[in-house]
């Protein structure tokens, strides 16, 4: 049988997804994330994992180089690729927020000065967010250390992900508004979803059971 290829983001999300697959009965051993290995195979379940940079996961899936992928909703929206979104895994929760300097007098994004500069890794989402509020801003695309921008005067505000808000606080920033909540999603190539429909559906059902029971557990 042909292997199902799953593109996974390197980093913390990887281990959570492996645990989820294990609980769903798909992996009977834990796959070690070895930073030098880019492909991991599990013969028993017929799954093959490729480890990619998170922003590249949707690309692997869109071209069909991977049948499935796991990626944060933030990246998925930003990359805007033609893929099916099958399941909210509930993992890797974070918020995409607009943040400003702690001592800023602003209480609402509409108070941002005309043509404010906004630094972000997410120019598409940020552009849509401000456009839908009728606000005109200058987007500055950065690739990392976004928190630096307001401190050194590169931008009036940033749009970035935060989970506990600690990094923001440490850099003298605070949340001004929430853009959206993000969790990891299971995505599929549209053609793989058709051709391997049965196997993918079974996998989704098994994973959904685990996700639902864990969510139920958290609420108690």
């Amino acid at each position: 049988m042909r292997e199902l290829t799953i593109a996974m983001p390197k980093g913390r999300l990887f281990n959570s997804v492996v645990k989820l697959l294990h609980a769903a009965g798909y992996l009977d051993r834990t796959l070690e994330e070895d930073s030098r290995k880019l492909i991991l195979c599990d013969n028993q379940s017929g799954l093959r994992f490729i480890l990619a940079k998170p922003t590249d996961v949707p690309t692997y899936v869109e071209y069909g180089a991977a049948d499935l992928g796991v990626v944060g909703k933030d990246v998925l929206r930003e990359e805007n690729k033609d893929v099916c979104e099958l399941l909210d895994l509930g993992l890797g929760y974070c918020r995409l927020v607009v943040a400003v300097k702690e001592n800023s007098p602003l209480v609402d994004v509409t108070q941002l000065p005309f043509n404010s500069r906004i630094a972000t890794k997410y120019p598409r989402i940020t552009g849509e967010y401000f456009l839908s509020r009728g606000l005109q801003v200058d987007l500055i695309k950065l690739h990392g250390s976004i928190e630096l921008a307001p401190i050194v005067g590169l931008a009036e505000a940033i749009v970035d992900i935060t989970s506990s808000g600690q990094t923001l606080r440490e850099n003298g920033l605070r949340v001004l508004a929430e853009v959206e909540e993000c969790t990891a999603r299971l995505i599929a190539n549209p053609v793989s979803y058709k051709i391997e429909h049965q196997r993918i559906s079974e996998l989704v059902r098994a994973m959904r059971r685990v996700v639902l029971s864990e969510q139920g557990g958290n609420k108690v």
Binding site: V61, E62, G64, A65, P190, V191, S192, K194, I195
Partner: peptide, 9 residues
């Protein structure tokens, strides 16, 4: 219509 070799229709 689609084929396995191509990830789109």
């Amino acid at each position: 219509g689609y084929t396995r070799e191509l990830g789109y229709d």
